[in-house]
């Protein structure tokens, strides 16, 4: 076969390009540790995500000092949780699955991008150095409302990040002279212990109590209010823990009526 010298030169140049491309990608994988979405996760039943311990309640969990896991469910035409909130300076592993058709989970303007296939769990580990707010889009056609499928990913300042959950149980109505109780449960879903102050404000008066909640634990603080001091009528109260707030109204009555169920 009779190949012109110039064409031989080009053949070699073309092979150099090809090998160079493969070498660059290999450097990215081995040298920089960029991993591909793979088959490391077991399959799941898309119709039974409600019973799946990871996906029944889509959420972010802390698994190490600066390590988090995000369990994300994509479905027509939404992502949950939404927004996904993680701290800056952390390493987050996303586990994403679909309840129905094929979607994608793609964080706009970043290299976080995966297909989401029902039955399969896509997993990717990402380091977030800086705080920022990103949009999440589905970039695979998933039905007539595909263009409305979006979510948010918030990377918040490390010292502003917590996984505290506040729930308050309070009496609605008490008789004058009785004591009203307000139970404040503070759940700390992070691993480190949480030192904070639970504040109750009622009728302009403020009560505070310092609490320490161990990682993964819930502490309940009970405030007892003497209704004689408050007097008859409606009294608005607010419970504050860090940035979280809950509020309600305590009604002090002369005499309790039966079956009177006022909401809050």
């Amino acid at each position: 076969m009779n190949i012109h010298t110039y064409e031989k030169v080009w053949l070699i140049a073309a092979l150099v390009l090809i090998v160079g491309f493969i070498a660059t990608v290999t450097y990215g994988s081995v040298g920089l540790g960029i991993a591909m979405i793979d088959d490391s996760e077991e399959t799941v039943e898309p119709g039974e995500l409600g019973e799946d311990e990871r996906f029944a309640d889509p959420r972010v969990e802390q698994v190490g000092e600066n390590e988090y896991e995000a369990y994300v469910v994509a479905q027509t035409f939404m992502f949950s949780p939404d927004p996904i909130e993680v701290p800056a300076g952390s390493e987050v592993t996303f586990y994403v699955t679909s309840r129905d058709v094929i979607h994608s989970f793609s964080v706009a303007g970043t290299n976080i991008n995966t297909m989401v296939i029902p039955g399969e769990v896509a997993t990717m580990t990402v380091e977030f150095d800086e705080p920022g707010e990103y949009g999440v889009v589905c970039n695979e056609y998933c039905g007539s409302g595909h263009h409305n499928m979006e979510g948010q990913l918030h990377v918040v300042e490390e010292d502003e990040f917590d996984m505290t959950e506040l729930s308050v149980e309070a009496d609605d109505e008490v008789e004058t002279g009785d004591e009203a109780t307000i139970d404040v449960a503070v759940e700390n879903r992070m691993l480190e212990e949480l030192e904070t102050t639970v504040t109750l404000e009622i009728d302009g008066e403020t009560f505070g109590e310092d609490v320490t909640v161990a990682g993964g634990e819930t502490e309940t603080t009970t405030f007892t209010v003497d209704t004689a001091d408050l007097g008859e009528g409606d009294h608005d109260w607010t419970v504050t823990v860090d940035d979280y707030e809950d509020s309600g109204t305590l009604t002090v009555v002369d005499e309790l009526e039966e079956e009177d169920d006022d909401d809050e």
């Binding site: 920089l32 960029i34 290299n111 990402v126 380091e127």
Partner: peptide
């Protein structure tokens, strides 16, 4: 330059 980028668990 389009960070963040997906990295492998093995880096840790």
């Amino acid at each position: 330059g389009n960070e963040p980028t997906v990295v492998g668990g093995f880096v840790t």
